[in-house]
Design a protein around this nucleic acid. Sequence first.
DNA 1: CATTCTTTTCAATCGCAATTGAAGAAAATG
DNA 2: CATTTTCTTCAATTGCGATTGAAAAGAATG
Lengths: 178, 178
Amino acid sequence: MSDSRQRAVAIAAETMGDLVAFWGFKSSMGRIWTTLYLSPTSMTADELAAVTGLSSGAISMGLTDLGQWDLVAKDPLGEGRKRRYVAETDIWGIIRRIIRERELRLVGRSVERFQQAIGLLEAALAENPDDAEAQWALGRLHGLLALARTGYSLVETFAAVGRLDLLPIRGVLRREEA
Amino acid sequence: MSDSRQRAVAIAAETMGDLVAFWGFKSSMGRIWTTLYLSPTSMTADELAAVTGLSSGAISMGLTDLGQWDLVAKDPLGEGRKRRYVAETDIWGIIRRIIRERELRLVGRSVERFQQAIGLLEAALAENPDDAEAQWALGRLHGLLALARTGYSLVETFAAVGRLDLLPIRGVLRREEA
DNA sequence: CATTCTTTTCAATCGCAATTGAAGAAAATG
DNA sequence: CATTTTCTTCAATTGCGATTGAAAAGAATG
């Protein structure tokens, strides 16, 4: 690999690593995927280790993680002893799937937990209806629940982009502006 | 504070803490803000420490961090020695501002770094135009740059919600579907 | 302006997740 | 099926950001 290409790949891989780290993935996953994505040929684990500077163990784990998200695949044309890997290239498809399978669950759990907190307060108020502070907190808690639900709708809508003809995010947010 | 309200606040604060931690903030910021948000009265640092279980230092730092984002303010009505704090309540305004001031910069930096990698490769190709692998990597790198630019437009559009009459996210994404 | 109370700072510590590297498991080869 | 090569696992290590708590700085009070 030419020195310039090596450096360009390193910059791109590091950039993508930072982006996916911000997204809650391991930055090594971003580095490995990008290295594969920018390679004209499939690559072996030790080639990846050489280019990324990661250890054999980190490469193996990273490839496993990436494989679980279908972000890399084994090269079907690979022959010889060593396995060869290629990057999935449908980036928008990847993003939609991750949003659907991860962010949606995260926000969904938050909705449930806010509901749980509300349930607790309501039970307390049933016993002691004059607790003004609890009444007040209950109102704000309903606000947080509404927020989480709006977030859920947003993520849900976003995850469907490409399947839907129209993206009604505007509608989801308009309701909040009131 | 009643025991039930105490527990409900703790659940909500923890939930918000997890959400903001996923967003790259300290979870203690989410806990402190939520505790204030659910309190009918402004609170002092040691009340916050008692409710959240954080140390005095963590509360002080957390309040400073939150103050820098205008997520909490000193209670203007507070009198006596101790400072009292209140939570900013315009949550959607907060979200838009954070997206504008933080996410936009993050993606903007990524755009620049991909451009930098492209510049490097192009310089190398000017010297050695027959490097087929570099040519190929350059094409893919342009793809990553386009992705980052689309992300930038998306974030930018999202950050403007409320100021614009129409949210043209659909348009931004449509271009990618081609 | 001395005293008392409050807040901030920061070096030390903690806790967690990423990473390493060698041992063990698995797979390919002859 | 023995040998060699490759891949995975996992206990130990590293690295880093969050947290602590005591000391320093800063405010309020009489």
